[in-house]
């Protein structure tokens, strides 16, 4: 294995891991696999594109690249606004679709099917608004930096890894050291008991949607920055995200990130040694293998 494969895998894995953290949070607390999470990733990227373009239109100086990166201040500022808008979108979807189903005590399969419907709707809406053609945050060319051992990475790629690491550490600290994090873990374990312990479960659910959407938006911006923005980008990421969330163990934030890196490196190895057309199959193999061998994942609890 060359070092370049490892670097490529880490870059892809950082994006997958960040998305998987969002999946694992919503899965562990809302108790269903939200297949619309991929569309939150796509919407996050498009919203960041729209807002950063708007900012650039108002002030061209904010689009001047921040060396050594390929983008100007308009992108980070646009991303902050997009995080808020993606969270709002997630809350609207929950209020309109998932919330009423939960109140009717709908079966998990109904929630999962509803998430498929939400995904189709959100994706179609994106295509309607932005068309299906690819978009880019920036057209700037970047020169890859030598990392040693023959490996190279662009500053944007290294930034993506750094941002993913920072976000994961932040979410982990939020869950383990803050009162809202403890409440989220309590709700994840037992919603009824959380209620009689004085926790407003509905408020916690809203916070989970906000956090999950924020992570999806950041993952979308990272994917859009390194590859391109397309309405299908979230759908393409969905299988690796679920593979990583389940491999890491549902509910485990560090597990999801580590598993994301494993899936990313696995994809890079697959592309190098098997063929690019088998890249997506790797996630499926990982998913099936972990469900057969260790369904609780690397860091999950056996009784879940």
């Amino acid at each position: 294995m060359t070092l370049q494969i490892l670097v490529d895998g880490l870059i892809a894995g950082a994006m997958i891991g960040l998305g998987a953290v969002g999946i694992t949070l919503t899965y562990s607390i809302l108790r269903f696999a939200n297949f619309a999470h991929g569309e939150l990733i796509s919407w996050g990227a498009y919203l960041a594109l729209a807002v950063s373009s708007g900012i650039g239109f108002l002030s061209a100086s904010l689009t001047v690249p921040l060396a050594p990166f390929s983008f100007g201040w308009s992108l980070p500022l646009g991303t902050l606004v997009a995080i808020a808008l993606t969270a709002l979108l997630a809350l609207i979807v929950d209020a309109v679709l998932f919330g009423p189903l939960r109140r009717r005590r709908g079966a998990v399969i109904i929630l999962v099917m509803a998430s498929f419907g939400a995904a189709l709707t959100l994706r179609s809406l994106l295509e309607f608004i932005f068309t299906s053609g690819p978009r880019y945050f920036t057209q700037e060319l970047q020169i890859a930096i030598r990392l040693g051992g023959g490996a190279r990475a662009t500053p944007d790629q290294m930034l993506v890894i750094a941002v993913a690491a920072l976000v994961v550490v932040g979410v982990h600290l939020l869950l383990t050291r803050s009162s809202i994090g403890r409440s989220m873990r309590a709700v994840s374990e037992n919603q009824q008991l959380a209620g009689v312990a004085g926790i407003d479960v509905r408020a916690v659910v809203r916070i989970v949607w906000i956090l999950g959407a924020a992570l999806a938006c950041i993952a979308g911006v990272m994917a859009g920055l390194l590859v391109q923005i397309r309405p299908q980008m979230g759908l393409d990421l969905l299988l690796p995200l679920f593979a990583a969330a389940i491999l890491g163990g549902i509910g485990s934030v560090p597990g999801a990130m580590l598993a994301g890196l494993i899936v990313g490196i696995g994809e890079a190895l697959t592309v190098r040694y098997v063929g690019a057309e088998w890249r997506a199959a790797l996630s499926f193999v990982v998913l099936v293998a972990i469900l057969l061998v260790r369904p609780q994942g690397l860091f999950g609890k056996a009784d879940r």
């Binding site: 403890r182 873990r185 309590a186 037992n190 008991l193 959380a194 312990a197 004085g198 926790i199």
Partner: peptide, 14 residues
């Protein structure tokens, strides 16, 4: 009780 939380965290949550 919240089995996955520590004793202190159970009390903190409440």
């Amino acid at each position: 009780i919240f089995a996955s939380l520590t004793i202190h965290e159970n009390l903190q949550v409440a």
